[in-house]
C-alpha cells in the first residue's frame, strides 16, 4: 500500500504538489489522472524518494522509500523520462540493477524475454525506439518481482499488441494482490484497465473513487427520450430548467440535468406519451473532461467545496 499524507512540493514559487493525501490500496489497479503539469510525475518522484518533499510524507507500507531494504524487491517503477545510459546495453542496464538487490543474473534474461527484448539484449540502448525503451523500463520495474508497481505512462509508445499485453499484465498482477499505481492520459485505456481513480489538478486532489462512481458523479446524466409529443415535452422540461437537445433520430431527444425517473414522472403528470426512456452512459473521457474543465475554472476562484474530494483532502 502507498500512503501519501499532506504532501507538499515547492520549486521556488511554484507549488507542484499542494497538500495531497491519498492511499493506493493493494489488489486493484489505481489510475492516476490529471492534466499536463498537474503534478503526477512529481508525486511519483516523491513517493520514490527521488525528490524530497517540502512537507508531508509518502510512505510505502509505512516506510519512506529511502528506508526500504532491497527497494526493487518491494517496488518496481517506470518513470516517464528515460533513466538509462545510452551507451550501455539493455542487459547490462538490468544487470547492475539486479546486482544491487541480490537478484540472480538469469532473472535479467527472463524479464528481457518477458518484455520481448531478448533479441536486442546486447545492443546499446541509444538506438532503441520509444517503444523499446518503454519495454526496457517495464522490464526494470518487474526485475525484483515487486509487490508494488508505480508506472508513469506505461503504454506510451507501445504498439497495440504491447498495450494489450500491459493491460493484461497489470490486471493479472493486481489479481495476485499487488498494488498497481499507474498514470496515463489515455482515457479509453484507463477505462478498461483501472478499478479506482485518483485525479489531481494543479497539485491538488480532485477525486479519489472507483471508476464507476467517478463517471456517474462527473458527467451530466443524460437520458434519451422518444416521444410523439416532442414539443410539449420540450416545453415541460424547459420549465423545470432541464436542457433538451435534438438528435438525428426521428422524435428522439436528449434531456440532461435530470434523471429517467424524474422525466417519467413529469410525462405522466402532463399526460405525455413516451415511446422510450433510456439513461445514457457517459464515458470516462467525458467525465474526465467535465472534471478538468471545471478544475480549470475553479482554479481562478478561492477553493470551493468540491463534491467527492473535499471530504478527504
Amino acid at each position: 500500500m502507498i500512503e501519501v499524507r499532506d504532501l507538499v512540493k515547492r520549486y521556488g514559487d511554484t507549488t507542484a504538489v499542494d497538500h495531497l493525501s491519498f492511499a493506493v490500496e493493494p489488489g486493484r489497479i489505481t489510475g492516476f489522472l490529471g492534466p499536463n503539469g498537474a503534478g503526477k510525475s512529481t508525486t511519483m518522484r516523491l513517493i520514490l524518494g527521488l525528490d524530497r518533499p517540502s512537507s508531508g510524507s509518502a510512505l510505502i507500507d509505512g516506510l519512506p522509500y529511502r528506508d526500504l531494504r532491497d527497494p526493487l524487491r518491494y517496488v518496481g517503477a517506470l518513470l516517464e523520462a528515460r533513466a538509462v545510459h545510452g551507451g550501455r546495453s539493455a542487459f547490462n542496464h538490468l544487470l547492475y540493477l539486479a546486482q544491487t538487490q541480490g537478484v540472480p543474473k538469469r532473472r535479467v534474461s527472463e524479464v528481457l524475454e518477458l518484455v520481448g527484448l531478448s533479441g536486442v539484449a546486447k545492443k546499446r540502448t541509444k538506438g532503441f525506439s520509444l517503444g523499446m525503451g518503454q519495454r526496457l523500463g517495464i522490464a526494470a520495474a518487474l526485475l525484483g518481482d515487486p509487490k508494488i508497481l508505480i508506472l508513469d505512462e506505461p503504454v506510451n509508445g507501445l504498439d497495440p499488441e504491447g498495450v494489450l499485453w500491459v493491460r493484461q499484465l497489470l490486471k493479472a498482477l493486481a489479481g495476485e494482490g499487488r498494488t498497481i499505481f499507474v498514470s496515463s492520459h489515455l482515457m479509453n485505456e484507463m477505462a478498461v484497465t483501472a478499478d479506482h481513480l485518483i485525479v489531481i489538478g494543479r497539485g491538488k486532489l480532485q477525486a479519489d473513487m472507483p471508476v464507476g462512481q467517478f463517471i456517474a458523479q462527473f458527467s451530466d446524466t443524460a437520458v434519451l427520450v422518444r416521444t410523439p409529443e416532442a414539443e410539449a415535452l420540450r416545453a415541460a422540461a424547459g420549465e423545470r430548467g432541464w436542457t433538451v437537445a435534438d438528435t438525428d433520430l426521428d422524435g428522439a431527444l436528449i434531456v440532461t440535468g435530470s434523471t429517467a425517473p424524474e422525466i417519467g414522472e413529469l410525462a405522466a403528470a402532463r399526460g405525455l406519451v413516451l415511446h422510450e426512456l433510456t439513461p445514457q452512459r457517459a464515458s470516462l473521457e467525458e467525465a474526465y473532461m467535465e472534471l478538468t474543465r471545471e478544475t480549470g475554472e475553479f482554479a481562478h476562484r478561492p477553493a470551493p467545496a468540491w463534491g467527492g474530494a473535499d471530504g478527504r483532502a
Binding site: R69, R73, T100, V103, R106, L142, D145, E176
Partner: peptide
C-alpha cells in the same frame, strides 16, 4: 500462480541489499 511465470518468484532471490 504469478503472471510473471515462467519466472518463479524465488528466482528473485532473498536477503537484503548490502
Amino acid at each position: 500462480d504469478s503472471v510473471m511465470t515462467p519466472i518463479a518468484t524465488r528466482d528473485a532471490g532473498t536477503g537484503h541489499a548490502h
